[in-house]
């Protein structure tokens, strides 16, 4: 066994022990219709270790400065998909974005994701997003008798749709899409990703039906391949590629 190189870990530990706090400005788009119909920017100054997450900064504000600041969060490490927001103009998860990686010298702007109705501060109405997801039949469909044991699937067939199984339904992709901003009827990247996950699953038998759903005027053909979705995905899913694969399947009817 090779001896592990300790250099990087050592340096990280030393830096962590020093914990140099810096002052950062969070510039947050506030909106509360109980108080005003107008949204406005509000600045908060916080002391924070640059290796902490944007979510930690939001908690500092909520817990120490202004309890009315409202946002969703749960797992705090990029798995639950609650805290997608627009940070410095890009869709990201607040819990996967470290302060040091987004130029803390300047004010960090934070606003709700676009294209969905803002309910309060950073909270949007997720219902249209989940409706589009439900519309693509996001579940395995099979016919005939169930086998007594598991269905067999080769490792290669399993790998075929691996990328799109990673989706956490955070809406970072869909709400980064200019087509979706202009027309909320468009299914949006996340719904297509979840259709892809089943269309290319060798066990599934409803690929044709899903393709027909996505052949609709609000389906995959609306995609303009701007790659915003791929850039926005916190799970590293190649979203645009998945959409292209669905388009190709619609033309060739092979999947």
């Amino acid at each position: 066994m090779a001896t592990p190189t300790l250099s990087k870990t050592d340096a990280m530990e030393a830096a962590a022990a020093a914990s140099p706090f810096i002052t950062v400005t969070f510039r947050i788009r506030r909106f509360n219709p109980e108080i005003s119909d107008e949204a406005q920017w509000q600045d908060f100054q916080i002391e924070i270790d640059p290796k902490e997450r944007v979510l930690d900064g939001l908690h500092k504000i909520k817990w120490d400065l202004d309890g009315t600041l409202t946002f969703r969060r749960s797992c705090a490490h990029g798995i639950c998909g609650s805290d997608a927001m627009r940070i410095n103009g890009k869709n990201r998860l607040a819990c996967k974005t470290l302060i040091k990686d987004i130029n803390p010298e300047k004010p960090i702007t934070i606003e709700a994701i676009k294209g969905l109705t803002v309910m309060k501060d950073l909270v949007v109405d997720m219902e249209p997003f989940f409706q589009a997801y439900r519309d693509v039949m996001p579940f395995l469909v099979t016919t005939g008798n169930e086998p007594t044991r598991e269905r067999l699937q080769s490792a290669e067939d399993r790998e075929r749709f691996d990328d799109t199984t990673k989706c956490i339904l955070c809406a970072a992709c869909t709400s980064s899409c200019p087509v979706f901003w202009n027309d909320g009827q468009y299914f949006g990247p996340a719904a297509i990703v979840n259709a892809h996950r089943f269309i290319f699953d060798s066990r599934d038998e409803a690929g044709e039906q899903r393709l027909e759903i996505l052949n609709d005027k609000d389906g995959v053909w609306r995609c303009r391949t701007t790659f915003n979705c791929t850039d926005a995905c916190p799970r590293g899913i190649e979203v645009t590629k998945a959409i292209q694969e669905v388009k190709r399947a619609l033309i060739t009817r092979r999947f």
Binding site: F139, L140, T142, E146, R149, E150, R151, L152, Q153, S154, A155, R158, F161, D162, T165, F198, D201, R203, D204
Partner: peptide, 20 residues
């Protein structure tokens, strides 16, 4: 319980034989 989930569509990692 595992077989139920597989039939519901859960994408388990597979052996070279295609089993879970």
């Amino acid at each position: 319980a595992v077989l139920d989930l597989e039939k519901m569509g859960l994408p388990f990692n597979r052996t070279p034989d295609g089993t879970i």
